[in-house]
Design a protein around this nucleic acid. Structure first.
Lengths: 220, 220
DNA sequence: ATCTGAAATCACCTATCAGTGATAAAGGCC
DNA sequence: GGCCTTTATCACTGATAGGTGATTTCAGAT
């Protein structure tokens, strides 16, 4: 039980996750991690080469970031990748909302996203790499078999929407308001979800659900 | 010339701006500000009650945040508030893009936005208050006389788009990529601008400029 | 039992930073 | 010129952080 190197490494990694969740990125230092893990801080240097190496290792932990399958499941999309026959917008909107909700339940991931905006750090850098593969994976599964409007930069549109979700969810964890909407409440986040759906349907095509036909974009 | 309290205060405030611009928020500490201003750090406590008070004062500086008039001017909208007769989307899209560009030219403001996401601090708190009035002011001028679709939460839609702009511009100052788009380059930001325009027109109504009619949202 | 190497700890150094009490210099005023 | 208030500086403390060399403890092999 005692004197198990792998177990000790795992405890250190877990300590980082707990610290991120409970106390935020600012609290993640060599001393604090060592104390939270109940080990000597020298081991962080020995086993991970320092705090930077430790954070990179943490970023590769599978439970830090929501998996593609988890997002698809949350969105109610068959993970087998079978096409549900809907339009692109009908697939993307629930996906973004599912991503939003999953992110909201992962304080450590939100913390990493938020601090990756403030300054580059080993955790957010490694996470950014993983997210890129993640995005490609999702895109590959969603775009397959669906017609995308060729006259719009879908990648850029998704970039904007993903950026918005990251930003607003990161702010929500602080319980602040943004543009008059309380992001710390379910009501506020619900409004954001609806707005995301409106934006997706408006930009990616298809009818906006529940929209008054009189104001729907059209040739008129 | 020497021994002028107001002048010294101004120098301290300027030092914060310069430090934000050149070295980032992390570098803004009592010691660094004092050194950059060429004064003793005790004066920060005496004149501003500490770093927090100083940052609140900085947030109220008119040149930190783009003024409403500057954004309207950048967007090519008459600052007198005269209506140009366009649709809501035709007014909002250039406004968001103007805001985006102005923000990109204000490293200190970007720094404040970015760190306000990471953690609450006196600078971002005070800035958030100012931004709220700012948003109300802009909204008041833009919505006046224009028909807004009643079936959509316009405030939430704008919240999402503003959040996206803040997020992507904050990332752009780090020169990173996001969702495969290089935000540090003019080309990447240009794609973001176009995407914002597409999203605005899609969600707020009106025809997307240059869009292929075949894929335009409609009853079909 | 004891030797050995891995695993883990201890004690210590240095740098940095926020904050404070005592002190010095400058300029108006008579 | 001498005095007093304002302005500004000096010198110090305490806390916290990252980082490292020397040392100890344990498990397994011989």
């Amino acid at each position: 039980m005692a004197r198990d190197k792998e177990r000790t490494k795992a405890r250190i990694i877990d300590a980082v996750g707990g610290l991120l969740t409970r106390s935020g990125f600012r609290a993640v230092g060599v001393n604090a991690v060592a104390e939270a893990a109940g080990v000597d801080k020298v081991l962080i240097y020995r086993y991970f080469g320092g705090l930077a190496g430790l954070l990179e290792t943490v970023a590769d932990e599978p439970d830090l970031w929501p998996t593609v399958d988890a997002v698809l499941a949350e969105a109610g999309i068959d993970e087998g990748g079978r096409d549900h026959g809907g339009t692109l917008a009908e697939a993307v909107a629930p996906l973004l909302i599912a991503y939003m909700r999953l992110l909201g339940r992962r304080p450590a991931a939100l913390e990493a996203v938020a601090w990756g905006v403030a300054e580059q750090n080993p955790l957010s850098d490694a996470l950014a790499r993983r997210r890129n593969e993640w995005g490609n994976d999702v895109a590959g599964r969603v775009f397959r078999g669906r017609k995308a409007p060729a006259d719009r930069d879908i990648q850029a549109v998704l970039c904007v929407l993903l950026g918005a979700v990251d930003h607003l969810m990161a702010l929500s964890r602080l319980g602040v308001s943004f543009n008059g909407i309380e992001l710390g409440t379910d009501g506020g986040l619900g409004r954001i979800e609806d707005a995301v759906a409106v934006l997706v349907h408006g930009a990616l095509g298809g009818v906006i659900p529940g929209a008054d036909p009189g104001v729907r974009p059209g040739p008129g």
